[in-house]
Design a protein around this nucleic acid. Structure first.
Lengths: 138, 138
DNA sequence: GTAATTGCTCTAGTCACTAGAGCTTCAAGA
DNA sequence: TCTTGAAGCTCTAGTGACTAGAGCAATTAC
């Protein structure tokens, strides 16, 4: 049996976050000690590790809820789980592409400044005048 | 003189967001019509375009507040503005690196599924068992 | 003149937590 | 056994950057 602090240390999920996940129904309400403290089994540790891993990969809490529900029905076809993962991959790729465009422009903005006064500052001018942008972004 | 809707169309910032920026002190409260509707000048249009541009580049509202304040003091040295832009560039690069690690793992997860039942599903197994991960992430 | 659109204020909701107050329980050492 | 300090409990409210909706008033186009 693990206390909530044990669980936190083993999974890397902060204590208040574990309680938040319980409130949201992502993890079941566990047994309690005589003094009303949460006591977790290994099964609950594993579920929390699953959630942590999925959150690290950027899955939304709602997606995780679906994945957990699916994992409870091992006889079903896995197309749904597969689709959630693929959508997440697409979304990650879009974010990368967007951030790369921002990187390009920020490089231009942040490296052109000659260290003089704000009146000549390329950072400020570039932000004021969209026409200075090399290509479209945002 | 522009109405809030004109401003919204010209800058691409949504109407409630313009009012929110006013509340946050990013744009000044403008003149009002006889019927208490906001009426903006070209100067305010330009400031909002500045804000929009900076938000597109991922600057936080607090950073934008600093940049606006700096742009009102053109005699100062621009080192501060420069540093804000450079920090933003560093943060964007970190996000890109992190997302690329996620992309790699998601590719592995999302493409190995053989379309059978959830019991054999690689997506679910990969999320359950961190040891299946090729390298560290998160 | 009237109807549709746009605008107003205000409150509350989003997401995924995080922080704090004020209390109780637990575990380890004396 | 007692005590002390860490860890736990519940509850409320705050974060950032908006977004949605209610219930009105003003403006604009026909």
């Amino acid at each position: 049996m693990f206390s909530i602090g044990d669980l936190s240390r083993r999974t890397g999920v902060k204590v208040p976050t574990i309680r938040y996940y319980e409130q949201m129904g992502l993890v079941a309400a566990p047994e309690r000690s005589e003094g009303n403290q949460r006591r977790y089994s290994r099964q609950e540790l594993e579920r929390l590790a699953f959630i942590r891993h999925a959150r690290d990969l950027g899955f939304a809490v709602e997606d995780i809820r679906s994945l957990i529900e699916l994992s409870g029905h091992p006889e079903q076809l896995c197309g749904h789980a597969d689709r959630i993962a693929e959508e997440q991959l697409i979304s990650v790729r879009e974010k990368i592409a967007q951030l790369k465009r921002l990187e390009t422009e920020l490089e231009r903005i942040a490296t052109c400044c000659d260290g003089k006064t704000v009146g000549d500052c390329y950072v400020i001018r570039a932000l004021s005048d969209h026409a200075l942008c090399a290509d479209e972004h945002g």
